[in-house]
Design a protein around this nucleic acid. Structure first.
Lengths: 209, 209
DNA sequence: CGTACTTTTGAATCGCATCAAATCTGGTGG
DNA sequence: CCACCAGATTTGATGCGATTCAAAAGTACG
């Protein structure tokens, strides 16, 4: 069954940058919770983009402790595998879901021969770096309220952000338990520090008189 | 005074990828603690790479609260500014230091015309994404011991890492206070979970018999 | 209508941050 | 060479806030 790219680019705007030739070489792969998708040490033959569900890049330390290097609930994964000789970790499915597999060689040659795609890919990576740096900075804040404020300021614009996920999901992204997020939101709302209108969260100007 | 690139690439390996033509167009800028280096809203004319000291990308929320989007103590900064129309935040110096300024236009044209540099830049960004994802994942762990173990496994190889910074600096990178890191290291050492030999930290295999 | 999941609140606990202080270290200048 | 100083390292005591466990009400979906 051919891939419906029009529909995909709606859900996953990052995919809009993929040019025709590369699209035609792309395959989907559905996965079941717990499935081991790729194994450490194997040469990476494909580039991944998660469409639904959650996958994790993990390493098992001596003794069997699982170390999660990355979890993805959407978007490209393991961008560095484009140049790696082998996978540096295992890829496992945390839920049922579906992903895209771009043949590595095709991806690389498209990157070399399609200037527009090349540029778009660099921009995509740069944006991801920025997003991750901000997220990392945010997680270094130890107060739940500070993280919420930081999120609104950093991920939104003009001190206001529209949330397009559940609050439980937001809590996970903030590195908080959902209970604490709910409590914090209530306190921030009651103290007048933020205004909540549906899915819109705004930092309010403090009364300075 | 010309820039000593040989010396720089020793300290900052990322700079090795910069080709001749771009190097010649690069200028250094020294800065003092507290200095405002670039202002939000200005069109970015240069690409930055911190050589020494610390700079921060910050936004000021309504009411004057400072939101740190990124702090850099070495390496490229604000990679996304290559494509941005304007800076999305202020750049301020947190300490005295020094940075490199690559003219944006030259950087961009070199990226377009020098395939080797193009490829190296993509690899650099991809690696940074991987590093940041791992760091982000690590900071979502709430236990100090887990973060230490995660760091050793993720940033080292074969369950062993050599630290090339002070422990105080390491604590900051882990998102912990230095006091907690010292305490945690002692506990992990005394319980036999890790082995410390100078600057080498190793996860030890649990006695399973 | 029932089931699964999200949202919301409560109470108890644990661990990190904080404040304080002592020792150790490397580097500077007398 | 030694005195001195700034910063790193190390340990202690205390309090706060996030986690955790528990439970109820709301909501979307088949």
């Amino acid at each position: 069954m051919p891939i419906d790219w029009d529909k995909l680019t709606d859900e996953q705007p990052a995919l809009a940058v993929i040019p025709r030739g590369l699209r035609d070489a792309t395959r989907t792969r559905v996965f079941k919770k717990g499935e081991l998708l790729y194994r450490r040490g194997q040469p990476p033959k494909v580039m991944l983009c998660v469409l639904s569900g959650e996958i994790r890049l993990v390493r098992f330390a001596l003794g069997g402790t699982e170390i999660v290097l990355q979890r993805s609930r959407g978007g490209f994964v393991a961008e560095a595998s484009l140049d790696a000789q082998t996978y540096h970790c295992d890829v496992v499915a945390a839920t049922d879901g579906c992903l895209l597999q771009f043949p590595r060689a095709t991806f690389q040659s498209t990157l070399e021969n399609d200037p527009a795609f090349n540029h778009a890919w660099i921009r995509l990576l740069a944006r991801e770096v920025r997003r991750l740096r901000a997220q990392s900075e945010r997680r270094s804040l130890n107060s739940a309220a500070d993280r919420v404020r930081h999120y609104i300021e950093a991920e939104g614009s003009d001190g206001s952000v529209i949330l397009n996920q559940t609050r439980k999901g937001w809590a996970a992204e903030l590195g908080l338990t959902h209970e604490v997020l709910y409590r914090t939101l209530r306190q921030l709302r009651e103290s007048g520090d933020i205004v909540i209108e549906g899915e819109r969260f705004s930092l309010s100007v403090p009364m300075d008189t």
